[in-house]
Write a protein that binds this DNA or RNA. Sequence first.
DNA 1: ATGGCCTTTATCAAAGGA
Length: 275
Amino acid sequence: MKIATWNVNSLKVRLPQVLDWLAANQPDVLCLQETKLQDENFPLSEIAAAGYQTICCGQKTYNGVALLSKQPGCEIISGIPGLDDPQKRVVGAIYGDLRVVCIYVPNGEHVTSGKYQYKLKWLAALREWVCDMLGKHQKLVLLGDFNIAPEERDVHDAKLWEGQVLFSLPEREAFREILELGLVDSFRLFEQPEKSYTWWDYRMMAFRRNLGLRIDHILLSSQLAKECTSCVIDKATRKLDRPSDHAPVVVELQNAGTSPPHGSSEIPLITKPRD
DNA sequence: ATGGCCTTTATCAAAGGA
């Protein structure tokens, strides 16, 4: 099973790129963020013509998340339970034995901003919810735009970004606390190129100079991590005309999503395992 | 990196993103 996440920064603008990407990559599930579309304006027929079902949760102008999948999902959820939040940032569904949760974490704007406090509050609510879900679902994938670069190696210039939003210590601590519930950052299960990022500012020729941050993540429950055979960032999309400022991240999972859990047979790793 | 761009909505710029 192939699962991907991509902050498209307007699906209206990026729809042709998304359709091309689906055709070329054939993911089982593609999670989108920043669709910026109300549900009644979602391009359902174009997505269906590409062979994909849609579960969307959007609003006008800002935010908006969606799940595109080959098979229908069930137990659809939107928003964090118990968090009163009008912003459309969460959508989830179950595919086979896999619980998928697509998130668009608030940006935070600046560490002195009220939006930063909202971001931290939102992350605390997310943590509580993930804790619940891990008790219910052996196979959980939490993926999307986290708007947090977890470690120094995830930032092109850690000194420059020190204390700044996206890399401040409270945000990184919140990210770490979510991992400590029992999730694994799939990207770090494998050897990766140096200076791997998922977002580059539109300004200052940042992509050409690789001045980026790794802020889009695919986190896996420990049971699911055993089945993960690769995790890659698809930088090629950032070179297209009118690109999103984010690149997709893609994981391959064996067994998950198709049938009931298998026995505990050893699963060979396809891409280079670390250690 | 002083900022530099892109998207949306609604004007004759402003807000938000990261």
